[in-house]
Amino acid sequence: MAEASLHEKTAASKDGPLLNVRGLEAWYGDSQVLHGIDFDVKPGEVVTLLGRNGAGKTTTLKAIMGIMAKRKGSVQFQGKELINLAARHVARHGIAFCPEERGIFSSLSVKENLLLPPQIMPGGMSVEQIFELFPNLKERLGSQGTRLSGGEQQMLALGRIMRTGAKFLLLDEPSEGLAPVIIQQIGRTISRLKQDGFTIVLVEQNFHFASKVADRHFVVEHGKVIDMIPNDQLDSSIDKLHAYLGV
């Protein structure tokens, strides 16, 4: 039931998608985790992937990024097929990835972490702009990356990919394990990025946070997208969502 309505909705969108994922499958070793993920993202949109633990949300981001060694299906970005590209070539198309648990390098200083990702294309934020957004980072440039608080690490993880010029971001649980006030700051940052024309795919467990920033929500279960809920229909779909997420 959900599948038919989902396809209608995506087909109805007039402006072509920036990212179009069709039948995406992926494996960890011999065990298949994704069984045909379908979703799309329009330019300038913020979408979330919602779902229970182990549903395949993180794996979806990794498969798009080209980090999963074994994957099948289609990932089209700006009309170009990415499914057979190595991660570094996917990145060169202007897609940036912020992993679960932030991926701050402990053997690098804050400054080195910030400057690590090379600039892919022009138009990235300058270091000064990033400091405006996250003033904490400026004071701690010399510290070891992992000595920062969780919130500061998240800012660093976001800041470093905003430098690269990539306008399409894959963010894996940016709100995880953070204090409410920090989550608000991350939320403001995402809204600001949206205003600046970034397109964002967000994996979230924090449903409340997701509802504040996203345009559409895709529900992932057992390695498939089983439903799509536009943010403005969220209130009317709340029971359905709770059933999906088992809250």
Binding site: V90, A91, A96, F105, L116
Partner: peptide
């Protein structure tokens, strides 16, 4: 960085 997490460094291009 690549010694710590080569996959992520690759994902930065």
């Amino acid at each position: 960085a690549a010694t710590e997490n080569p996959a992520l460094v690759g994902a930065f291009g």
